[in-house]
């Protein structure tokens, strides 16, 4: 069986206060840092619904992707805050499908129009950087001392321009 068997099924669900517990649980095992209550309030913002999803594999929640919109001058950026898939479910294109979903949503977003998507990757995480580069992201710089409590402290900044659909 390959990851493309008809049995395997990837689906997405929007976030609500009811399934936030699942997001917390996933974050707690996926990421080495604890997210603030502000983070969890933000991802429930109805404006972000298209950009914050739970990822299901065979009806079991196995990952999340969460972004927020930022306004910089007359530009609107989509900031990819978190994306992660549980270890046993990796290498099955779940991350790619999740990212594609968000990218599609971004390009069909008109009010406001989204100019680019960007994110931070810890400089020890080469795998992640390559993953984003495969999806058309480019390194645009390094944010020094981005992580204060985990080492290494620096992070790459990766971004990709969004063209309207």
């Amino acid at each position: 069986m390959s990851s493309a068997t008809p049995n395997s099924r990837v689906s997405f669900a929007s976030l609500s206060s009811n399934n936030l517990g699942t997001v917390r649980k996933l974050n707690s095992v996926l990421f080495p840092i604890k997210y603030s209550e502000k983070f969890y309030n933000d991802i429930l913002n109805p404006d972000y619904e298209e950009f914050c999803k739970l990822v299901y594999y065979n009806d079991v929640p196995v990952g999340t992707i969460c972004c927020r919109l930022e306004t910089k001058g007359d530009q609107t950026h989509l900031y990819l805050m978190t994306m992660g898939i549980l270890a046993p479910y990796r290498s099955r294109k779940l991350g790619s499908e999740s990212l594609d979903l968000v990218l599609r949503a971004a390009s069909s977003h008109h009010q406001p129009k989204i100019d680019k998507i960007y994110l931070h990757v810890q400089i020890s995480n080469g795998d992640a950087k390559r993953f984003y580069e495969r999806h058309g992201f480019q390194e645009v710089g390094i944010h020094e001392d981005y992580y204060k409590k985990i080492a290494p402290h620096d992070a790459w900044i990766l971004e990709k321009a969004i063209s309207a659909a």
């Binding site: 517990g21 917390r24 649980k25 707690s28 080495p32 840092i33 604890k34 997210y35 603030s36 983070f39 805050m81 931070h120 981005y146 992580y147 204060k148 409590k149 985990i150």
Partner: peptide, 12 residues
């Protein structure tokens, strides 16, 4: 409470 065993605050 669903969360982390060790308390590390995120920065962003």
């Amino acid at each position: 409470v669903i969360g982390y065993p060790d308390e590390v605050e995120a920065e962003a």
